[in-house]
Write a protein that binds this DNA or RNA. Sequence first.
DNA 1: CCACATATGGAAAGGCTATTCCAGTTGTCG
DNA 2: CGACAACTGGAATAGCCTTTCCATATGTGG
Lengths: 239, 239
Amino acid sequence: MMGSMGSADHENPGQNTEHGDGQDSAPLRVDAERNRERILDAARRVFAADGIEVSMSAVARAAGVGVATLFRRFPTREDLLDAVFADTMRGYVEAAEAAMADPDPWNGFTGYIRTVCSMQVANRGFADVLTMTFPAAAHLEEQRALAYQNFLRLIEAAKATGKLRPDFADQDMVVLLMANAGVVTAAGATAPDSSARLVAYLIQAFTAPQLTTLPPPPDPDALAHAMLGLDCAGNQKSQ
Amino acid sequence: MMGSMGSADHENPGQNTEHGDGQDSAPLRVDAERNRERILDAARRVFAADGIEVSMSAVARAAGVGVATLFRRFPTREDLLDAVFADTMRGYVEAAEAAMADPDPWNGFTGYIRTVCSMQVANRGFADVLTMTFPAAAHLEEQRALAYQNFLRLIEAAKATGKLRPDFADQDMVVLLMANAGVVTAAGATAPDSSARLVAYLIQAFTAPQLTTLPPPPDPDALAHAMLGLDCAGNQKSQ
DNA sequence: CCACATATGGAAAGGCTATTCCAGTTGTCG
DNA sequence: CGACAACTGGAATAGCCTTTCCATATGTGG
């Protein structure tokens, strides 16, 4: 699914004008490319500070380009998200890979949680991204799936060491991300401290020793559906 | 500060036309009172479903009254919030009192957390209310302070039993409420299950037995400031 | 160096929202 | 029952937003 792009974009950084998935219908005029970059920079900044709901007009304004320029380059918000969070998602995947590589799976597991939550704290937009799904943002969803697969294996390994409680469910990670996103959103300047506390408590609770019975985890499909953001009232979308 | 109203509004429910803090500059004409009630009903419904950011126009629409009617009765959103969440806040205070009354403080403590988080799940607007401060909503803030004072004593009692870990900080409750609000917002239909899981994990982590060292709790003043909602970008407020 | 596809900004159309204003009801008190 | 203050809905103003359109400007290949 990702195989066709090979390793080209690592070998030739900045040389080719392709973006995202590789189908360059035409290698953008240089001025256009410059604007594209400006937009991405501005969007990165704005999304990180204010979350991904910022108005498209605000992004264009921050980038110093007209709205038309923004819309031609990124017809939908999801297109923009896909491009803006490409780097961050790469870091997300790498965190999962690094965790798997850790000789101590429990250490990998806890480190992964801490890393990802720190990423949420550092970037409010990313906190949003990790609690929602964007079917149209193919590249982004691909990375998410990739990271998740690694995480599933990480869970198994961590449980095998006996340090992670056996009733830990992979959905718990989603719940944790939503909870942490709530802290990032509401805790303002105290987000780093508040998040760190929350995470420490939860990691504590994930350790095996104590065997309190837990209520059942949320249904995975229902959770996935919730991440589409279609049920929460604020979203009447287009049509 | 609340003393003057005595117990009147328990003895005479529906009889007097006073609202809120007792200064009835003039006991509302009956049709006006009827509309006021309609507005409150609609607002309760809408806020519970969609959170407290719903547009004032939407509230008026749901209530079947003109916008002018809404604005004359509740000049600001905070005025409306104060009236809408009066009941819920009463329940919030009562939950804290009930917890204090429990002969087993640890049981009271955990029960309190579960109850309050359930209230957040049942009412998205209330979830918002518990993570923000509304200086203009006097009645509401009074109740919040009242519940908090009870909670502080509850913490002491629970620590005294040795079941609550000694490094539990009262700010942790705020963090918990923010985290749970995040789940309520993002988890859609799975909110009940997701929240229950989160809460179970956290209560687990609050128990004394394991003595993992925690990062320091967030600064109380900074947290309070964050709850004003002035730092998070989305709010440019008036002027 | 020129033609022209590509790219541009700003305006326009249409839909939201908050808040104020006002001309027209309608309770209510004497 | 009449007069008047209280109350009403909807229009008006002003400000955002999204998305499309277009006349103008500008890289770029021949």
